[in-house]
Design a protein around this nucleic acid. Structure first.
Lengths: 220, 220
DNA sequence: CGAGCCATCTTGACGCCGCTTAAATGGTAT
DNA sequence: ATACCATTTAAGCGGCGTCAAGATGGCTCG
């Protein structure tokens, strides 16, 4: 019933790498598996991300990953986590290189959606696993930081007198907008607009320009 | 190379049901399989939607579905399609029972997101398959009608003098907003807000109330 | 410096899956 | 009644996730 492992807990955490020196046989198989996963993801799409394929790609037996990942989902989490770190970094940079307000919203949004457009397979994977991250402890730095960044992005664009609830609702709406746009922007239907506006970048800027949270009460 | 079947083309289309009378052996297995799929979806989630499981649920052999669906994806399409018809109907009703402008945006949005909240597994499936619908011929009524409804919803809320491009961009932004909100609204993180505001309905209304496309040029 | 520990990795196996091929079945039309 | 042919079944292939048991080899401690 407790949160301990079923058998006697070992001295080293079970699925964390050795932390300083390189581990025993392979030389950090966990790292190699995640890298193999990212390679497979780019090469053949997220459907090809099987444990066996990843093990094959890393040159180990089919059961080897089970000493580093509890199951297939755990491996996907690990790959998606790296994506979240990268996305978080891009959004963070966009946040810091912009002034508060509408301009920042557009810049952060373009960073977010641009990442999804540049790494569609990886973003898909992150997307699929987000629902399950959501019910994990928030010890995952990158996953927790991103909502906070967005809250800051949208919250700060509101007039100072507005309530905390208003800020939160604005952040939620903005987050939803980014996620939705990241999805829709990949649709074939969008290509005419992209062509008309001169590419992904201008298309995103035009759509994000429609967002305005400047001054609107939560309950009319 | 042609689009004909590999063997001699039969008199009736291969994967459409018999259209009036009930077919040969089972009595409309295609219908039964889709129903079994929806049942399984609600009971065990979209991961359990295997062809074998659906066949088992319908009480036929594992290979039987292949005479009604080209592959697993085709079955998922069929189930998702029914979801799209239902969603389309709800959105259509919301559209007709509202005045143009901000009020309609909120009503249509609540219908859309409300459907996703009420049928999470089905919406997920629709969501996953939308990307592939997008590259299909638009002979699918419900799938094509929904974007048009949203375009009307957002386009009509713009002042008459605005350009067609503006209307389209507004529709895209709105569509993205709905999709994103349908996703985010299912997160555990949203529960405090829902509790604070008094439930799903008021939460959605509050967030959707943040959307404003009333008067904003496409290129500032 | 040698012996043993124990995490790591392999081998082999089980059940489920998507999908194919060939044979059986049973409405329907002649 | 009979022949046709769509429909369904039976059997099988390779791939998958996962587990149990054994082999391997780096690390630690005597």
């Amino acid at each position: 019933m407790s949160d301990d492992a079923p058998h006697a807990p070992p001295q080293t955490p079970p699925d964390l790498k050795a932390a300083d020196g390189r581990p025993y046989h392979h030389g950090d198989l966990r790292r190699a598996l995640v890298d193999a996963g990212r390679r497979l993801l780019e090469r053949e799409g997220s459907a090809a991300l099987s444990l066996r394929a990843v093990a094959r790609e890393a040159g180990v037996s089919a059961a080897a990953p089970y000493h580093h990942f509890k199951d297939r989902a755990a491996l996907l989490y690990a790959v998606a986590h790296e994506g979240n770190v990268a996305l978080n970094e891009m959004v963070h940079t966009a946040f810091e290189n912009s002034e508060p307000g509408q301009a920042r919203i557009v810049k952060v949004g373009m960073a977010y959606v641009g990442f999804a457009l540049a790494n569609p397979a990886l973003y898909d994977l992150m997307f699929e696993t987000t629902r399950m991250y959501d019910s994990l402890p928030d010890s995952l730095e990158a996953e927790g930081q991103l909502p906070r960044l967005l809250a800051a992005t949208f919250g700060a664009s509101l007039p100072a007198r507005r309530s905390d609830l208003d800020r939160h609702l604005a952040a939620i709406a903005g987050w939803a907008m980014f996620r939705g746009l990241a999805e829709v922007a990949q649709f074939r239907t969008m290509e005419p607009f992209k062509a008309l506006l001169g590419g992904d970048k201008d298309f995103l800027e035009a759509v994000l320009g429609r967002l305005d949270f400047s001054d609107k009460p939560a309950k009319p």
